[in-house]
């Protein structure tokens, strides 16, 4: 990676005498991460994706404090109003402000998405790296454990959990977190199998470094590219999962809202009060789109050989 940018320091020792002759060359070379960031910034869709994701996140977390309504305040007099200056996205059949509920739901949906991804990132990367780097019998045992967890049908798993422990938002986090790290562990292990055969890892062993240090400093940074891409794509996948569970009535329970709950409620009444479905669905789809754009952009940025240009 990056060999095409090799600069021979022997022939250009002075910082300002580089071949391209540009003035103000940075004193320190850019890292491969810096390069990737540069390529990401040039990708318009990815930039849009990043901006929109940040916007939605910020608005969802701050928004509910700014709207004059509470997410569960019912007002039967104003039940099921179409969008108006008072209620920008209208109200639902119980007179609750849809905009407030979308923002509030976004909080839960995004929290589920990011939290589950963070869990899968930490567990998956460590598990996969240890399994792949140490190899042998340990690797076989660890990966068979992953296979077994994989074999659990997710919906049945969640239903069992809710039956056993009752409806609880924390259970939802737990269930999604427990499932989403599996693929991450497999991806990381595959990458590590390749990286650990690289000479710089062997050189690190020859330097006398301990195994934890080698895994953390030399192996993991070299597998982070695909990991970041996969993590970015995990966020929307998990949000979709949460929406699906909520839609089935297994996830977030009313009066709490999440995008899945709102879409479910909207879908029940879409022929009479279409705005109940249109607004949450639009926000949800746009968010998923932008996260996916961001993920695609990151993949192109981190893998310059695979990029089209």
């Amino acid at each position: 990676m990056g060999n095409d940018r090799t600069t021979d320091v022997a022939t250009n020792p002075a910082p300002r005498a580089r071949a391209d002759g540009t003035a103000g060359v940075p004193e320190q070379g850019t890292s491969l991460w810096g390069d990737a960031l540069y390529r990401l910034r040039r990708n318009r869709l990815a930039r849009f994706g990043l901006a929109f994701s940040i916007l939605v996140t910020v608005v969802s977390f701050i928004g509910p404090y700014c709207t004059p309504y509470s997410y569960d305040a019912t007002d039967l007099v104003y039940g099921a109003q179409s969008p108006s200056p008072e209620h920008w996205c209208g109200t639902d059949t119980l007179g609750r402000d849809v905009l407030t509920r979308i923002l509030y739901g976004g909080r839960i949906s995004l929290t589920v998405g990011f939290l589950a991804t963070a869990v899968s990132l930490v567990i998956g990367v460590l598990y996969g790296a240890v399994s792949g780097y140490l190899g042998g019998k340990l690797d076989a045992v660890m990966m068979r454990a992953v296979d077994i967890l994989y074999a659990l049908p997710f919906t049945v798993f969640v239903i069992l959990l809710t039956v056993a422990f009752g409806q609880d938002l924390r259970l939802l986090f737990l269930a999604i977190g427990a499932v989403s790290w599996l693929t991450m562990a497999r991806i990381v292990r595959g990458q590590v199998l390749f990286v650990r055969r690289q000479e710089y890892v062997e050189a690190a062993v020859a330097l006398g470094l301990g195994t934890p240090r080698i895994i953390l400093r030399h192996v993991i940074p070299n597998v982070l590219g695909p990991v970041i891409v996969y993590a970015t794509l995990t966020v929307p996948a998990v949000m979709l999962l949460e929406a699906a569970l909520s839609f089935l009535g297994l996830g977030v329970q009313p009066p709490m809202s999440s995008w899945g709950v709102l879409i479910k409620e909207g879908a029940e009444k879409m022929d009479i009060y279409p705005w109940l479905l249109i607004w949450p669905a639009a926000v949800f789809s746009l968010t998923l789109f932008s996260l996916n754009f961001l993920g695609d952009g990151l993949r192109d940025a981190l893998d310059p050989q695979g990029a089209r240009d």
Partner: peptide, 9 residues
């Protein structure tokens, strides 16, 4: 010394 390996021949 603060450069990255790809900057070396």
């Amino acid at each position: 010394i603060h450069a990255y390996p790809y900057e070396f021949s």
